[in-house]
Structures are given as structure tokens and as C-alpha cells.
Simulated assay, not measured.
Amino acid sequence: MRRITRITTVGIASAALALSATACGKSSTDAGSSPSSSTGATKAAIAYDIGGRGDQSFNDAAYEGLKKAEDELGVKGAEAEPSEGEGDADKVQRLTALARAGNNPVIGVGFAYAPAIEKVAKAYPKTTFGLIDDTSKTGPNIANLVFNEEQGSYLAGVAAAKASKTGKVGFIGGVEVPLIKKFEAGFVQGVKATNPKAEVLTQYLTQPPNFDGFSKPDLGKAAAQGQLDKGADVIYAAAGLAGSGAIEATSKAGKWAIGVDSDQYNQKGLAAYKANILTSVTKDVSDSVFNLIKSVKDGKPQTGEIRYGLATDGVGLADSNPEYKKMTDLIAAVEKAEKDIVDGKITVKTTP
């Protein structure tokens, strides 16, 4: 039976007030400690990135890891959603409430949680904090769960170049930040290595501090339509929830879309467009979340940088679409590129 508790922003504030009252009453645990460590119960929480659960991509992958921990480890899970236009103070409040409630580990989904985790981890040294997609903030109780997105994106570039009939392909980045630049760099390199004459159309939806490019499907849809109008027949979007709009536009045009983070061919919310989702660049966010929770439950919490790349199946290219499996030349090119990356014959760029 699922026991995941979803916490809204209002719920967090209420919980924080209630928990503050408990702390003032001298609870059995010291400030900065995790109640679960004293009771032996295992509670784990994830705080979602922009777009929240239901993005069919990054956040949903993290949720699957929490659900797996519930099902296989008997963990009681909690989820906390972001609020639109929030700042670091909101994230600090959210993480503090989750830690104070006895969750261990507490996992921030996305680099935007870095400043908040750095602050809250110091206040709760007995709680393990997971920080996905960021290594800028470290600590003795922080696990930095990071991925070689550029490697998976290189494979997507190979696939795009092989599948394209027009010689024009598109890349859509949600927000122009260093993380998404890694996706662009790998993709462009893979395309050009496969077809030097190919043209890659690149567009970012927003610039920081505007992060709507990760949450507004209409932005992705409009960008994809613009690239389709220019002749692109394969479009790869690394844009979170906004990427679903790009997939919709590409599918309706009868062209190929490449998904990201999760195997988007199998996402229920994208079922209407799955026939045109050629493949997806997958990041094993699910297992990274599960592995961190399991390490805490086992009494050997992960800390420091934990990297997932091609060599460990931490990133890859999905082959769920039956049409993809029929493209023997494409598959052979992807498999060769994957082997060459793992063997060190190809070094994939992390910046365009």
C-alpha cells in the first residue's frame, strides 16, 4: 500500500509551526537531529523542482525512486511541491520542515535547491541531504547525485542525425544554465560527428532568473513549431514540463521527438504522442533516489559526489518505440558511439 504524503507549500508552513511548538516543548530529540534516527523508523522525503510531480520527466523520475523505496524497503515517503515564483527562503522553509519531521534522507530535486540544502544541512547534521544535479554545495551529510547528461545527449545526436531526412534537427533548452548547456553540447557534438553537414537549430526558452522554460508547455510548443517551420524533422527538448509542449508540436507535425530524463515513450501523460517519440535520453534519477534512501536505511549513508554515466548505465538512450528498433543503421551507430565513449575514444564536451 502506498503511504506517500504530499506536502503543499501551505502544509509546510503549518507543519513548521506545529513542529516549532514541539521543539519548544523539549522533544526527545535534540535540535539538528533526525527523529527517525532515534525511533528507528525510516522516513524519506523529496522536494520537487519546478513543474512538480506530473512533469512526465525529471520530477516524475525522482518520484519513481521514492515509490520504489516504499514498495521494496518499507519506507514511508513524503513529497513537497514547489510554488510558483519562489525563492531560496521558501526552499529553506520546505527542507527544514521535512527534516524536522524526521525524514532522512531529504532530497532536493534539482540544482535550484543547492543554496537551501547547504544551509539546512548544517542545521541538521544527523540528516542526510540529497542534492540532484549539483556539486557546488558539499558537506559531510550531503550526497551530490549527478549525471553525465552530455554522454546520453551525444547518443541522441547520433540518433537524430541518422533519423533526419532534411539534414536539419532542433535542440530546445528550457533555461540557459550550465546544466542544460551540457545537453546541448553533447547533442550537437553527436549530430556533427555523424553528419558534418547537418544543421542544428538551437533555442532556449527563458533566461535566468526566469525559470518558466522548465514549466510552461506552451513555450516548448511554440519553439518546436518555429524549428519545424524551418525544416527540422527531429527535435530534442531538455526542458522539463515545457518539453511536453515540444513533443506535442513535433508529433502533430508527423516528425520525430526525442524525450529527456525519463523514457517519455512510456509516460501516460504523453500517450497521445508516443508514436512520434523516437527515443529519450534517460537519467537514472529513480535509482539515484532509491540508492540514497537505501544507503541511509542500511546505516551507511552516501555522501559526496555520486556520479552516474554511460559506463554504469546511469544515462542512456531508450529503445521502447518499436519503430526505433527497426532502424538497424541507427542502432549500430548509437551502439558504436556508446562503446567509444565508454572506452575513452570519444570525449564528450560539457559546454557548446
Score class of each variant (00 low, 15 high):
residue 329 D to A: 15
residue 314 G to P: 03
residue 329 D to S: 14
residue 17 L to Q: 06
residue 35 P to R: 14
residue 85 G to P: 07
residue 232 A to D: 12
residue 42 T to F: 09
residue 267 Q to V: 02
residue 57 S to I: 00
residue 192 K to P: 06
residue 323 E to I: 10
residue 117 I to L: 11
residue 59 N to T: 12
residue 150 E to F: 00
residue 149 E to Y: 02
residue 223 A to Y: 07
residue 285 V to K: 02
residue 319 D to G: 02
residue 346 I to M: 03
residue 2 R to L: 05
residue 238 A to F: 04
residue 169 V to Q: 06
residue 96 T to K: 14
residue 103 N to H: 15
residue 227 Q to L: 14
residue 312 T to P: 00
residue 171 F to A: 07
residue 70 E to T: 10
residue 240 G to R: 01
residue 278 L to S: 08
residue 104 N to W: 10
residue 242 A to P: 03
residue 41 A to Y: 08
residue 55 D to H: 06
residue 150 E to Y: 05
residue 176 E to Q: 15
residue 89 A to D: 15
residue 139 G to L: 06
residue 254 G to T: 11
residue 320 S to K: 13
residue 88 D to K: 14
residue 96 T to A: 07
residue 35 P to I: 09
residue 96 T to Y: 05
residue 284 D to K: 06
residue 54 G to V: 13
residue 238 A to E: 10
residue 163 A to M: 08
residue 96 T to M: 09
residue 271 A to S: 15
residue 40 G to K: 05
residue 64 E to D: 15
residue 166 T to H: 12
residue 304 G to Q: 12
residue 290 F to V: 05
residue 280 S to P: 01
residue 38 S to L: 15
residue 121 A to M: 10
residue 282 T to K: 09
residue 78 A to H: 07
residue 208 P to W: 10
residue 164 S to C: 09
residue 283 K to S: 00
residue 169 V to H: 01
residue 57 S to D: 05
residue 85 G to W: 08
residue 5 T to Q: 04
residue 251 S to M: 07
residue 66 L to P: 11
residue 80 A to Y: 02
residue 38 S to V: 15
residue 140 P to Y: 06
residue 200 V to D: 00
residue 278 L to D: 06
residue 179 L to Y: 07
residue 115 P to L: 11
residue 95 L to F: 10
residue 162 K to E: 15
residue 151 Q to Y: 02
residue 197 K to T: 06
residue 210 N to T: 03
residue 132 I to R: 03
residue 226 G to D: 11
residue 242 A to Q: 07
residue 13 A to I: 13
residue 343 D to R: 08
residue 316 G to P: 05
residue 111 F to M: 11
residue 221 K to V: 13
residue 268 K to V: 04
residue 176 E to L: 06
residue 66 L to F: 13
residue 330 L to F: 07
residue 257 A to S: 13
residue 1 M to A: 13
residue 254 G to C: 06
residue 182 K to H: 04
residue 99 A to E: 11
residue 254 G to M: 07
residue 251 S to V: 09
residue 53 R to H: 03
residue 290 F to E: 03
residue 338 E to I: 00
residue 332 A to Q: 12
residue 217 P to A: 03
residue 128 T to H: 11
residue 198 A to M: 13
residue 113 Y to L: 12
residue 247 I to F: 04
residue 236 Y to E: 09
residue 288 S to F: 04
residue 281 V to R: 00
residue 87 G to D: 14
residue 287 D to S: 15
residue 149 E to C: 00
residue 224 A to H: 10
residue 17 L to I: 09
residue 78 A to C: 05
residue 211 F to L: 15
residue 262 S to P: 00
residue 31 A to C: 07
residue 228 L to M: 11
residue 201 L to N: 11
residue 113 Y to G: 08
residue 340 D to L: 03
